[in-house]
């Protein structure tokens, strides 16, 4: 009886490992290939390689020297960090209001937040292009950041609201007795406890900002505002050597992967906080 059960566990493990490993291989295949290619000299690109044979780190130096990679990186950092900062501040305030107060349009506002998640960028970009031209915001960093904030904002609000709901309000009541304002209580008491949720919100909005493609492509025109996404896709279109494109791509995917690895213990639970309601 016992042995039968043990066999069953082993069979169970084998099936599960098989499923997981097949996916891991598929998940990492493009990144692994990109990495090998980024280290291959141009003349050797036709060779078949399953593991890195050459270590042409100079590809990285060349792509940075020969293309405006630093400019692209700078613009991407501005978009991603700008998006995260605005998103965090706006969603903390909104989530606090939704969690701690009772007011008239609360349900309507919650529904609005859920609904804006499905408004696609491609639908908004046409009128936004006209609007940014008529308001003089065309070709500025801020218009891209604001547009990305709108795309990023729903999930952090729902997530932070859920987290604030789980914090008892007795601490704030004590603070209020001491003459602390609501905003003061939010900053001094609630935020320090909410670090996991704030970290998740930061990571999520950073990913959205780093992913920006359509908005920087349409809403800006000067070279300094070209992001990594737009810059690399143009490099691909003008037939740049694949080893350079792959070096650039590896540089481009390091920031989100690093942030993911740092924030990941909070992320998995956090992402879906809003959707089980």
């Amino acid at each position: 009886m016992k042995r039968k059960r043990r066999n069953k566990t082993i069979r169970d493990y084998i099936v599960r490992y098989f499923v997981i490993i097949v996916w891991v291989v598929i998940a990492l295949l493009p990144i692994y290939t990109a990495f090998i290619t980024s280290l291959t000299p141009f003349e050797k690109l036709g060779e078949r390689m399953l593991y890195p044979k050459y270590f042409a780190w100079e590809n990285y130096a060349e792509v940075v020297a020969q293309t405006p990679m630093w400019e692209y990186l700078k613009a991407s950092v501005i978009y991603a960090v700008g998006t995260s900062i605005f998103t965090i501040i706006i969603s903390i305030l909104a989530a606090y209001a939704l969690s701690r107060f009772r007011f008239r349009f609360k349900v309507a506002f919650m529904m609005l937040i859920v609904a804006i998640q499905v408004i696609p960028q491609i639908v908004i970009v046409t009128p936004l292009y006209g609007l940014s031209n008529s308001t003089g915001l065309y070709d500025t960093y801020i218009v891209v950041v604001l547009a990305m904030v709108a795309s990023a904002i729903a999930n952090p609000i729902l997530l932070l609201k859920g987290f604030f709901d789980s914090i008892s309000s007795t601490l704030e009541e004590a603070a209020a007795v001491d003459g602390c304002t609501r905003l003061g209580a939010l900053v001094k008491i609630i935020l320090p406890i909410s670090l996991p949720a704030v970290t998740t919100a930061f990571a999520l909005s950073f990913f959205t900002g780093w992913d920006a493609y359509l908005y920087p492509m349409i809403l800006t025109s000067s070279p300094g505002k070209v992001s990594m996404t737009v810059g690399l896709s143009r490099m691909k279109d003008i037939v740049t050597p694949w080893n350079w494109i792959m070096s650039g791509t590896i540089i481009a995917i390091i920031p989100p992967i690093l942030i993911y690895l740092i924030a990941q213990k909070y992320l998995i639970g956090g992402l879906t906080a809003g959707s089980d309601k």
């Binding site: 996916w23 990492l28 295949l29 990144i31 290939t33 990109a34 780093w210 989100p256 942030i259 998995i268």
Partner: peptide
């Protein structure tokens, strides 16, 4: 590891897969 494709921006996912599936030199 399983979650990693989610954090790769669409554009870079597209560029990498274009190379992986390239008809002449793709792996």
């Amino acid at each position: 590891v399983v979650i990693i494709p989610w954090v790769i921006p669409h554009v870079f996912a597209g560029t990498m897969w274009s190379w992986v599936l390239n008809s002449t030199n793709g792996i």
